[in-house]
Amino acid sequence: MKFRKPSAKVMRRTLTGLAICLALGGIGLVAYPFATNLWAARIQSNLVKEFASPAAAQAFRSGNIAVGDPVTRIEIPKLDVDTMVVEGTSLSALRAGAGHYPETPLPGEMGNVAIAGHRTTYGRPFNRLDELEIGDKIILETPIGTHTYEVLAAPSVVLPTDWDLVVNDYPPGGSFLTLTTCHPEGAATHRIVVRAELVDSTDAVAKAVGS
């Protein structure tokens, strides 16, 4: 079989196509985080509406929250974080920005409530998680109450496989909150973990009367 040298026209077209593909790829990579942020913002605005519905309160009370439905609103005043947290930590659930580990208790309950959040994409709610310090407040608002947690220790870095250490290893008898996100920023080799303890709880009725 004889190899025929491509004509100049074919070469021009091929190279043009290649250049367009490469440029589009580059632009796509640069635009990806911004696109995910827009996507997350859209999901968040829908979640806020869902969260205010009686159905959300009913689901929370029964402890039967579907994956992707809102569980709680997390506020971290020091980091200017105010985002809705959905049930589940799958890739699709976490497109909302932050997800509640379904294996852990609901906010305000005894045990360790664990929440994962994106660091660089999808609204990057936990981008500055490493800046938290002992005593910083983390507020979880649920359809039936508000729970305030205080950071117990400086953020620690663990391996992605340290599931038990992060989710199951906590002092029994108390109510704790664990936040996780990827570390270092722009990579996923490790996870950064913040542990907080419940210091105050107000149910929704008491809050409404108080206000």
Binding site: A19, A23, G25, G26, S90, V166
Partner: peptide, 24 residues
């Protein structure tokens, strides 16, 4: 394993692609 909540920083890859496009 703990959920994946971060994406690799692809800025450098994007830059390489743009340079390659310019080269093409």
């Amino acid at each position: 394993v703990l959920p994946l909540t971060g994406a690799r920083d692809m800025t450098l890859v994007a830059l390489v692609l743009m340079v390659a496009a310019a080269g093409a």
